[in-house]
Simulated scan of single mutants.
Amino acid sequence: MTTLKPGDAFPSDVVFKYIPWSEESGDITACGIPINYNASKEWANKKVVLFSVPGAFTPTCSVNHMPGYIKNLPKLREKGVDIVAVVAFNDPFVMSAWGKANKVQGDEILFLSDPDAKFSQSIGWADSASGRTGRYAIVIDHGKVGYAQIETEKGAVKKSSADAVLASL
């Protein structure tokens, strides 16, 4: 269990669950088929912002965390970010529905599932009491970590906010 820090290589074995967005399953009540998303492979040659929330559809995550990333997508793209992804312990169906509820289409933001908080536990950033993913943000630039911060104050969205990530780019 090693916390990621700037300069570290992003782990080579990170696989999330994911339901790709599609026009035919774009309605919130439509279900897609979950697939494995090999983040280590997909992100190896890209600049990525990964932010984590304790749970989809929860108040802090839905009101204070997600909207900042949606609003700042153009600014993140201007800073050279290829992929913005959010991860939570929720299953891929819930994550897909949360993306649709936020009117995110296509691959504007990837809504990834970290089943059993496996990845978050591997970097020491899972909540041991609840088993959920912690609230954090990581910038990965061509396989190297450039920014990695976890919120230590309950309900806070400071170090993992879109503004904090933008300031680090």
Rank of each mutant, 00 (worst) to 15 (best):
T60S: 15
N90A: 11
K17E: 12
G143N: 05
G7I: 09
I28R: 10
W43L: 09
P11S: 07
E78D: 15
R132E: 13
P20C: 08
D82F: 12
L110I: 12
V49N: 09
K100G: 05
V104I: 14
N102T: 02
K41R: 08
P20T: 06
Q105T: 15
K103C: 04
A88I: 12
P92E: 15
A148F: 10
A85I: 09
F89Y: 05
A117H: 00
I35Q: 15
D82A: 12
K46H: 11
A44N: 04
W98M: 05
P74D: 06
I109L: 11
K154V: 08
I70Q: 15
V81F: 08
I150A: 13
S128A: 13
P20W: 08
Y69S: 13
V84H: 07
P59A: 11
V48M: 06
D116W: 00
P6H: 11
I138F: 10
F111V: 01
I28K: 13
N45V: 00
A156V: 06
K17W: 01
S128L: 12
A101E: 15
A156K: 15
E78R: 14
F119E: 00
A148C: 14
I123Y: 00
Y18R: 05
G146L: 12
A30F: 01
V145L: 07
V14Y: 06
E108P: 01
W98H: 07
D91F: 09
G99A: 09
M95T: 02
T29K: 13
A164P: 06
D114W: 02
G146W: 08
L169H: 01
S130L: 12
N90V: 07
K41Y: 04
T3D: 04
S22A: 14
N38W: 02
F93N: 06
N90I: 05
C31A: 12
D13P: 13
A44R: 07
K118L: 03
C61N: 02
L76K: 04
T133H: 00
H142N: 15
H65M: 12
L110Q: 11
I83T: 14
F93Y: 15
Q121T: 06
K75V: 01
L166A: 03
H142S: 11
G7D: 10
V53P: 00
N102E: 11
A148R: 09
G134T: 07
S62M: 13
P34S: 06
A9N: 15
V94H: 10
V14N: 07
A39Y: 06
F51K: 07
A167T: 01
T29V: 08
K100V: 08
A117S: 11
I33C: 00
D107P: 02
P20H: 08
R135Y: 09
I138V: 15
V81M: 09
P74F: 09
P67Y: 05
K5F: 01
D116R: 02
A117L: 00
V81N: 04
P34Q: 06
G146Q: 15
D91M: 12
L4A: 08
V104Y: 03
K5H: 07
T2Y: 03
